[in-house]
Each structure stands twice: as structure tokens, then as C-alpha cells.
Simulated assay, not measured.
Amino acid sequence: MPRDRLGWSTAQMPRQDGRTFVVTGASAGLGLATATALGAAGAQVVLAVRSPDKARAAVSGAAGDFVIRRLDVADLSSVRAFADETPHVDVLVNNAGVMSLPRSQTVDGFETQLATNHLGHFALTNLLLPRLTDRVVVVGSAAHRAGVLDVNDLNFTRRPYHPYAAYAASKLANLVFLAELQRRLTAAGSTLRAVGAHPGYTSTGIQVGTGSRVFNRVGSLGNRLVGMPVERGVLPILFVATLDVPGNTYVGPRGPRELWGAPVQVGRSPRAGDPALAKALWASSEALTGVEWPL
């Protein structure tokens, strides 16, 4: 991993001509920054978004070949419809996410943070794997270190619900999924790879869209005091999406507590690397979504 004084930047990103990327949650924040950087590098980018009109306005005037399609990762029927209409993709970037929401359920009856951050992307990835040619990018968070997964109660039906605990659990699920996905790809003899990245503390709307005035105020203050601009925070995602890195690589900022800085390989919590937890989460995710391993 590069560790020079200035670090890696989009100026060092290889051209992506002839390649197709799907980026979920690409109408704002990190997803939009990922999409526009890839478009500027020559890729065709499918913006998979809940609001096509918002995405269309967001990329208006940006250089690139953009395709805008509706996808709500918190709705399995939307996920299946999107996958059915996707004939080919080189790289899938699982970026869409929500943070620290009050308790709520999706149309499928799942806890909203789990559904958006993990289950929807789990289903989308498995449905698209037979049509993928290169890699899956999982966008994680340093918050996974505080996460605890109860695979018998993923939707907090029996446990007390706390917004941040549910968020941290969903982000731990992302990294557990990443490791198990790569294990399965390797066992199947596939050349596909699964890689991950987290943006540290990047100033985006997710910190101020929690549904809680207290969380929103804390997030707004954090954005002003320590948050990286989006064009810096997106670099770990672009790094693993475009460079020749091994499967199960996980990249984040190199600064204190991985809050900011240039992209480098970073560590994970012991839970994120627990193979028994990974297999159990995969089985529970298959049962909840009805989507099975396709290879």
C-alpha cells in the first residue's frame, strides 16, 4: 500500500474505459463521488438509486457515461427487479447505507438498518454474481468494531433496540459478509474477488439524516470539526474498486483512529474475522432474503 507523504489520489487511478460499474446509493455523498470519479476515468457507471430524478440532477454536467436506474436496497422486490434487468457488470460497489435510525421496519419486515446496509446488498450481490466479471466492493465503517451480531435475532425482535448498536451491527455484518464471500469465491475456483473499504469520518448527509435531533446535532458538529471532504473520503473506495488488490483486502484512512488520511490497508475487529460467525450470518441471510449462493 502506498505510504508517501501525500498518499494516493484520483490522479493515480487507472483508466476504466470499457468497464461497467454499478454503484448503489449514488445520488449523493460517497456514492455520487464514487460514480463521478469513475465516470471521469472512462467507465460506464450505473447509478442504482431510490430517486432517479435526484441522481439525474446530481450528475447533470458531470463528465461520464451514466446510466440511472431505480433501486431500493431495503426492498427485496426492487433488488430482484434490478438484478433481473442487469445483463452485465464488471464491478459492483455496495455503498448505499443509513445510520442510527429509530426503530422501523421495511416492507419485507426487516429492521431498516440491517435491511439497507446488509440484507439488500447480500441479495443483490448473490443475484448479480453470475454476471460479474471482476469484483464486489463492500463499503464498511470503523463503527463495525462496536458491533455485535446475534444471528438468531438479527432484526432485534427480542433484544432491546438502540439506533447506534443496530447501525454498528449492520456494519459488522458488512465485513463478516466480505470475508465469507471471498472464502466462497476462492473455494469455487472463481476469479472474482471481494474487497472492502471504509471512508473514515467523511462529511456527508448520513450523519445528519438519522431521524434523531441529538444524533443529527452531534453529526453536524463532527462534520464541521473533523470530517474529511467527500473527495478525500471516497479515495479508499476508489482504491479497492480500481487497483489490483487481493481478495478480502480492507482499506481505510491511515490517520489516527482511521478518521482521516490517505488510503492504506487497515485492520478489523476479531468478530469480523470469525469464520463460524461468517457461516452463521450467511445462512441466516439466505433464510431471510430467500437468495442463495449461486456458484
Rank of each mutant, 00 (worst) to 15 (best):
T157E: 13
T157A: 13
T157V: 12
R158E: 08
Y164R: 15
Y164M: 14
A166K: 04
Y167Q: 03
Y167R: 09
Y167D: 10
A168H: 07
A168C: 15
A169T: 06
S170V: 06
K171G: 04
L172K: 09
A173K: 12
A173Y: 12
N174Q: 12
L175W: 10
F177G: 08
F177M: 01
A179E: 13
E180P: 10
L181S: 07
Q182M: 08
Q182G: 01
R184T: 12
L185V: 13
A188Q: 11
S190Q: 12
T191A: 14
A194G: 10
A197E: 01
Y201A: 04
S203P: 02
S203T: 03
S203A: 15
G205M: 04
I206T: 11
Q207S: 15
T210M: 09
G211I: 11
R213W: 13
F215L: 00
F215N: 10
N216Y: 09
R217G: 14
R217S: 13
R217H: 15
L221P: 12
N223R: 05
N223E: 00
N223H: 10
N223L: 00
N223W: 08
R224K: 02
M228P: 05
P229Q: 11
V230M: 02
V230Q: 06
V234T: 00
L235G: 03
L235K: 02
I237F: 04
L238V: 00
F239S: 07
V240D: 02
V240N: 06
A241C: 04
T242G: 08
D244Y: 08
D244N: 13
G247Q: 05
T249K: 07
Y250P: 02
V251E: 08
P253R: 04
G255R: 09
R257I: 03
R257P: 00
E258D: 15
E258T: 10
L259M: 14
L259W: 11
G261H: 05
G261L: 08
A262M: 14
S269H: 03
S269V: 03
R271S: 11
G273Y: 01
D274T: 10
K279L: 14
K279S: 15
A280E: 14
A280R: 12
L281G: 05
